[in-house]
């Protein structure tokens, strides 16, 4: 962690004063993306914390970060701009994993028939960006978040998808304890795990929410020099498109650690993809972890991982 702190101080001293409005605009895309992801994660974390009095992975401090910016969830140019950009490739990936798990091939893959009625829980749904998209595919979606502000915004932004789409202010742990929502056909948690206090406990709840054989999808940020730059320094200190302190680089989890956590909890690893954001064209690309001979280059910053709960 020492080099990271040093880099932060350095960036604060050097980068900030020489930013012109123009460069700020150009670079703000990158920062904003990072910021949004952090915010979403924080929201999820907050939700988790608030819900459970007993053991919970939710951090109250993290939760408050997201409450502050919750009004901006559905503004495509707002603080969550890059979360909007990253949404489509992530949903496409989730859809592909579901198709693989259910062995849907050929032209049927592009239809929505096979998706209809399958249940998904979106843990740390924030303003409902991913939940709505999943519901639009025909899935029966339950979006949960520890922050009441997020849930009310998600509910207000209703594109007429009810009853496919339902929101609830609760945490993964609570949901497991209630037993009512257990046994989902898929569990999704996007940009949340880096904001929780106890990642292992959080992952345990995710696995418990899934039906045996059901896929689990988790996206977060790697703990590398690159992620420090593009997910923390640029958005929070250079472009200042994301409130400072939204992300704590030391809480980021590497793909290896995440894989080990889930394997120990009785899930097998299916796939890992990197998410690379192009701030100029405002497009997000899903890339393989290894690019040619360069292993793990694709997952140096944002990544998404798919697991399958053992039968």
């Amino acid at each position: 962690m020492l080099p990271c702190k040093r880099a932060l101080v350095l960036s604060r001293r050097l980068a900030t004063p020489c930013i012109t409005p123009r460069t700020r605009r150009i670079h703000s895309a990158a920062t904003a993306a990072a910021a949004t992801t952090t915010a979403a994660a924080a929201a999820a974390a907050a939700a988790a914390a608030a819900a459970v009095n007993a053991r919970s992975s939710v951090s109250e401090a993290e939760l408050q970060k997201f409450v502050k910016v919750s009004q901006e969830w559905w503004d495509p140019q707002g603080a969550f701009k890059y979360l909007h950009t990253m949404n489509a490739p992530r949903i496409r990936f989730i859809r592909d994993i579901l198709a693989d798990v259910h062995r849907v091939t050929g032209e049927e893959r592009d239809s929505t028939k096979w998706l209809a009625g399958k249940s998904v829980v979106d843990v740390g749904c924030g303003g409902g960006l991913a939940s709505e998209s999943l519901a639009r595919l025909g899935l029966k979606v339950l979006g949960i978040d520890a922050a009441a502000e997020n849930i009310s915004i998600a509910r207000v932004h209703n594109p007429g998808l009810f009853p496919q789409l339902e929101y609830k202010q609760t945490t993964a742990e609570q949901l497991v304890a209630q037993k009512e929502g257990a046994g989902f056909d898929a569990v999704v948690s996007l940009e949340v795990i880096e904001h929780v206090t106890d990642p292992v406990l959080f992952c345990k709840s995710l696995v418990e929410l899934a039906k045996p054989g059901a896929p689990l999808l988790v996206s977060t940020m790697n703990r590398t020099l690159l992620s420090l730059l593009v997910d923390v320094v640029l958005p929070e200190y250079v472009l200042r498109s994301v409130p400072r302190g939204t992300h704590d680089h030391s809480k980021f989890i590497t793909p290896r650690e995440l894989r080990e956590i889930f394997m120990s909890l009785g899930a097998q690893h299916l796939d890992t993809r990197g998410l690379i954001l192009d701030p100029l064209s405002n497009q997000c690309h899903l890339v393989p972890a290894d690019l040619g001979v360069f292993s793990n280059v694709g997952i140096q910053a944002n990544y998404i991982m798919a697991f399958r709960k053992n039968d």
């Binding site: 495509p76 949404n87 489509a88 949903i91 496409r92 859809r95 998209s133 639009r136 595919l137």
Partner: peptide, 15 residues
């Protein structure tokens, strides 16, 4: 629109 529908996007949204 087809690409957007496959990804569950709102087909009328500006992005």
């Amino acid at each position: 629109l087809k690409q957007a529908a496959v990804a569950g996007e709102d087909i009328g949204s500006v992005p």
